[in-house]
Structures are given as C-alpha cells and as structure tokens.
C-alpha cells in the first residue's frame, strides 16, 4: 500500500489507545490516546481527538485536545477547537478557530541587535 494512501476513521468509530504507522489518517470519529504517524493527520469536522499527536502535517477542522508535534506544519481551520501545546516549524490559525495553548515554532530567531558598547 502506498504510503500516501489515506486511512479513514469513520464518524461511528471510536479508538481508545495508541495509533502509529506510516499511513496518512483522516479522523471523522473519536480517538483517545496517542497518535504517532510518519504521515499526515486530519482531524475532520465533527471529530474528537483527545491525544498527544506526532505527525508530519496536522490539519484540524474538529476538536483536538492534546499536545501536537508536527515536523512540517499545523493548520487550524475555521471551526476547529484546539487545546494543547503546539510544536512545529509552520503554523496557521484561521479566523474562527479556537485555540488555547502554547506555540513553539522552534526557529532560531536572529540575535537581538544591541547598540551598546
């Protein structure tokens, strides 16, 4: 199976535990536990994810509670509700999204220019 093939957790399914692997995953249902993917994760509208998440890219349109670490990017879209700390090099939060938590973009900021001395 191609790594890019999207797996789906339907709205009527609830997973309690640990999900890991290399398939991209779209969650429409409920997930509680941890999600660790070497691929993309989508938390779709209506989905509820209570989990610490590790993925390449994370797109949230539903409810996500937990710390999120994305090696590429996190996109929080309109209507999403995210509670947790985010760690990623690229982050976008759309107007209409609700977010509570801290953000670490892990970028080395240019040194503060000081004029002293």
């Amino acid at each position: 199976m191609a790594q890019s093939e999207m797996c789906v957790i339907g709205p009527g399914i609830r997973i309690n535990g640990r999900i890991s692997g290399r398939n991209a995953l779209a969650v429409h249902g409920q997930v509680e536990g941890t999600v660790s993917l070497e691929a993309a994760l989508r938390v779709e509208e209506g989905a509820t994810v209570v989990a610490d998440v590790e993925a390449t890219t994370v797109v949230v349109r539903g409810a996500l509670s937990g710390n999120v670490q994305a090696s590429e990017s996190i996109r929080i879209e309109d209507g999403a509700r995210v509670i947790g700390d985010l760690r990623t090099p690229r982050l976008s939060i759309a107007e209409g999204a609700i977010f509570k938590g801290s953000v670490d973009m892990d970028v080395s900021l240019p040194p503060v220019q000081t004029t002293e001395g």
Partner: peptide, 24 residues
C-alpha cells in the same frame, strides 16, 4: 468510505463503534 485502517497503521487498544471497519 467507512473506516479503513491501512497496511502501515498499527492500533493498540480498543476500537468500538457502529459502522463497517476494515483492517489492513
């Protein structure tokens, strides 16, 4: 559609629900 857990996915825990599930 329904729920498909792909060949490169591992789930440890409990899966419950009321719709078709396909595990690869």
């Amino acid at each position: 559609t329904g729920t498909v857990l792909g060949a490169e996915l591992t789930v440890e825990g409990e899966i419950s629900g009321n719709e078709p599930l396909q595990v690869e």
